[in-house]
Design a protein around this nucleic acid. Structure first.
Lengths: 340, 340
DNA sequence: CCAAACTTGATGTACGTAAATCAAAAAATC
DNA sequence: GATTTTTTGATTTACGTACATCAAGTTTGG
């Protein structure tokens, strides 16, 4: 049987109350006594029973998810996953709240974080907007002891404890290699559709994409990036326009809101010899993959991201280690054959 | 606050003892009283606090993993993951034991299962060997109330509660499409290296592979399957031999023990224009992917499989639902750009 | 050396559930 | 209607931890 507080007390030759004072870093223990207890803890390999502790404390984990108010399938999916997590709250002792902030708006994000810092959430998961002032307040909150994980979009260089999202540079590189390999010996132009270059994840995908393209597929030329602002209408217009260029052999859509892209592709489908790689599995991209409008979909599993963020925040709140491999968000590659 | 047994007792107008009898299906409760209590449970939305219950019972989950005694990287990795899980046992209340059985030997597997059925494990995870007698005893154990999940290799048509592994038909199909698309307009022969056709997962991969090849890439001809028995030496000889055929443009290695394959490929590398798809990410395949000997690796995450099996077995033992999406083992596709 | 401050022990309650015991009440049997 | 059987209640202990209280002991400071 694993040792309990009673065993520690006996081994250290002190009372239960003293062990408790040491374990919960309460004052009123002489230095030498504290050392005795800590030695006993180490030697017996005592690990406190979290379940029992939480029961005694009536503990819950108040968590906050901060999301951009973007109206695209991916964000809807993310929201749905959070709602699922809320349904599991009783069993997981969580108490989850979501806050929406305007997208691409660092100031709004900062003010929400500042507001939160006056409350007592034991963990914050946020889709980060990449700006110095956001980094600053995140660092402040982390120093004040709030566990913080970034979700979907990271805030590199900040002190956030963890990033629950994919490696977007790798995603871009992967897209480039798939596109290059699928095109084989063909030469021509490649169109890139992004949401906005002010979001870090889009910038990183593009960076990865262009570097592999340059290194390994010099016969393919990347056209100037189309910024669709994750809006189907805008994307449709931009892509339709761009496709008038007869030299285009491939398309990489690295943002969300791929509906417009798909529509433009279908209109052009008559003489279609395009190879298309897109991000995020939604009902639309899924259908397009099945009917061969899209050749491959790169995806991040929103459910995994949400569950992972919750696990990590709870672990950090308890000062526990996480299972790194479990929390790594992988880049899913879907062809029409391995759709879930 | 969520309702407790006390609330149920009050609401149903009975004593705590009676509520306990109902909750733990102990005898000595009249039918009408039982109904009263069950109504109260439903109306208050009572959910028992598993942590508290496990604490009170001093419960642990004795689990058994049954693995084939195969000496290949994948099985070593699986073993390592189980050892990791054993390290987490204290926190997860599990008590994990592994049993090795000779590979490809239904009789041995049956006798181990029979032996286990006389013990009291609360869950069994097994790499299934596909045979009628195995199916029979699995069904018997399931009927006797043992939670059983198959691991890596399934036992379709049996009553096992869950399969913690990838969809191997989809894996084969995906391999075919990748190979076909990577080869593009090239025509020629494709070599297939398998472990053994008596293992279900290998058969299924081949099935998926050949069907997509036939449907969509008629210019590529599949050569007779090479059975390497997951042995590097055998595989090396077979592949080296086969590569004398100048018409080969692609290779699909669907089994384990890919070391021999890689060696054969490197020896032949001088005039290499081969496209190669292999299964399972190991140190060897990883290196080969990086140096372009292999073009893509299909992988199943052994860590995920083990953790998933444990979660599912615990949930089944407690009669709880599992999060389906979380337990789905995905087919990882690795190019050199998205290696973990 | 005495009082104030600090340190420790002893003890009890609580968290939500499981499980056991014994007595009391109700129902079923003859 | 008495007796047996079944059903129910009341109460207690336990799981491992947290936390509070009070008394007693030990150090300090002046």
């Amino acid at each position: 049987m694993r040792p309990t507080v009673h065993d520690i007390a006996a081994a250290a030759g002190v009372s239960l109350a003293t062990v408790d004072r040491v374990l919960n870093q309460r004052p009123g223990v002489r230095h030498v006594t504290r050392e005795k207890v800590e030695t006993a803890i180490r030697e017996l390999g005592y690990i406190r029973d979290l379940a029992a502790a939480n029961l005694a404390k009536g503990r819950t984990y108040p968590l906050v998810f901060i999301l951009p108010a973007s109206d695209n399938s991916f964000m809807h999916g993310l929201n749905a996953e959070i709602r699922q997590a809320i349904l599991r709250s009783p069993a997981e002792r969580t108490d989850i709240r979501t806050i929406e902030v305007p997208a691409f708006d660092p100031a709004a994000l900062v003010s929400v974080l500042d507001e939160l810092s006056r409350g007592k959430p034991c963990g914050i998961a946020m889709v980060a907007t990449d700006a110095p002032e956001v980094r600053a307040i995140v660092d402040r909150l982390v120093r004040d002891g709030f566990p913080i994980v970034t979700l979907v979009s990271d805030l590199t260089g900040s002190l956030r404890h963890h990033y629950a999202g994919v490696d977007n540079i790798a995603a871009g590189r992967t897209a480039a290699r798939l596109l290059g390999r699928f095109l084989g010996p063909r030469k021509g132009d490649v169109a890139v559709l992004a949401g906005s270059m002010v979001v870090r994840d889009h910038r990183e995908r593009l960076e990865g994409f262009t570097s592999v393209m340059a290194e390994e597929f010099p016969d393919l030329a990347i056209l100037p990036v189309l910024e669709g602002r994750d809006d189907p209408e805008v994307a449709h217009r931009l892509v339709a326009d761009s496709l008038k260029n007869a030299g285009i052999v491939g398309v990489y859509s690295l943002g969300a809101g791929t509906r417009g892209l798909i529509r433009a592709l279908k209109e052009k489908a008559v003489d279609r010899t395009l190879t298309v790689i897109a991000h995020e599995l939604t009902v639309h991209t899924r259908a397009a993959l099945i009917d061969h409008t899209i050749d491959a979909i790169l995806n991040q599993d929103a459910g995994h991201e949400v569950r992972s963020a919750i696990r990590v925040l709870k672990a950090k709140a308890d000062g526990l280690a996480v299972i790194e491999a479990q929390e790594r968000i992988r880049l899913d590659i879907f062809l029409k054959d391995n759709l879930p």
